[in-house]
Computed example of a mutant assay.
Amino acid sequence: MAEDRHVIETLGKVRVVIENGEITEVGSSEMKYCPMFHAMHKVDELNEEFIRKNINFRIQDFGMCTPDRVIEMDDLVTVGISEILKTNMENGEIDCVVGACDGAGTVIMTNPRVVQGVGGRVSGLISTTPIPEVIKKLEDTGSIVLDPETAELNQLEGLKIAIEKGYKNIAITVIPSPMIKELRQYPVDDDVNVYIFVAHTTGVSAEEAEMVFKNGDIVTACASKEVSDYADEHKPYYYGLKVPIFCASEDGRRFLDNRLKKINKPLTTNDYPRNKDDSPRKLL
């Protein structure tokens, strides 16, 4: 039987391993409180019991890391990375998204509901193995799986395929790594735009925080002390108080404002000092 092993980081950089639809490993985190989970689930402490319960819910509800994986969804929250991408695909400003899906690896997607379904409820995907049923569902929607044999996670190779296919406005979702700089520096024609959305920033170093802001377009705060500190110093536009989404470029601000306009929310602001009364604790 082929290996079935998926590693994610979630809820404050907790490492979780899922094998054959079962949780086989749960790490621990110094972050004990998340305002988003408190608002949604009335949870005061992110302990192992809650983490297991939450991951099992994802497995049962939409088949995360299993052959039952649901890949098309409607909006899940008001403003998240996948919702921003979905809105800007629907209005024609983004042609395709290079993302990552459990059971498939790097995927090039052109269907907004697939972008939402793949990215909406999954945290940082560290590694994954192929699930043929998931790969078929993705390919049936017109998505391109980078490597169906290995489920490789490689957003740079995904960008290359998107360019080869003729896409001009390419968004990439990526977790912090040196590849972000490679993505930004990759040579493209004048009529090709590459937009970088950086998620899962909890635990980054000060150097990494500076790098993602200098090379990205949208940066999520997550529970990152260094991202929060960088924002306080450089004062980018942002949206949200509990877990802000920062605009690292004017393009990022435009994409975020497009989403906010659609749902009739106040547009991005650069009001500083930010209200941090209900932030994740502690920041990592």
Rank of each mutant, 00 (worst) to 15 (best):
V7Y: 09
V7R: 13
L11F: 11
R15F: 00
V17G: 02
I18H: 04
E19A: 08
E19P: 04
N20L: 09
G21Q: 06
T24Q: 03
G27A: 08
S28M: 10
E30Q: 13
H38L: 03
H38W: 14
D44R: 15
F50Y: 11
R52D: 05
K53G: 02
N56Q: 13
R58D: 13
Q60T: 06
D61H: 14
T66M: 04
M73N: 11
L76S: 13
T78L: 08
K86A: 14
M89Q: 10
M89V: 07
I94W: 03
I94M: 04
D95C: 01
D95E: 00
C96R: 02
C101W: 07
D102C: 14
V107T: 09
I108F: 07
I108Y: 08
M109N: 01
T110H: 00
P112H: 04
R113S: 14
Q116C: 08
G119C: 10
G120V: 13
R121F: 11
S123Q: 15
T129R: 06
I131A: 06
P132L: 10
V134F: 07
V134P: 08
E139M: 13
T141A: 05
G142P: 07
S143G: 04
I144M: 09
I144L: 15
D147E: 06
E149Y: 11
T150P: 07
T150N: 14
G158R: 09
L159D: 09
Y167A: 02
A171W: 03
T173D: 09
I175M: 11
I180W: 12
K181C: 00
L183M: 10
R184L: 05
V188D: 12
D189N: 08
D190R: 10
D190Y: 06
D191L: 04
D191G: 05
V192C: 10
V194P: 13
T201G: 02
A209Q: 00
M211P: 04
D217T: 11
T220W: 00
C222W: 06
C222P: 02
K225G: 01
K225S: 07
V227H: 04
V227I: 15
V227D: 03
S228R: 14
D229E: 15
D229N: 03
K235N: 15
Y239E: 08
L241G: 03
F246W: 14
F246K: 06
D251P: 01
D251I: 15
D251K: 15
F255P: 05
F255E: 05
L256N: 02
D257E: 02
D257P: 03
N258H: 02
K262M: 06
I263D: 09
P266W: 01
D271T: 14
N275V: 11
K276Y: 08
K282G: 08
L283I: 06
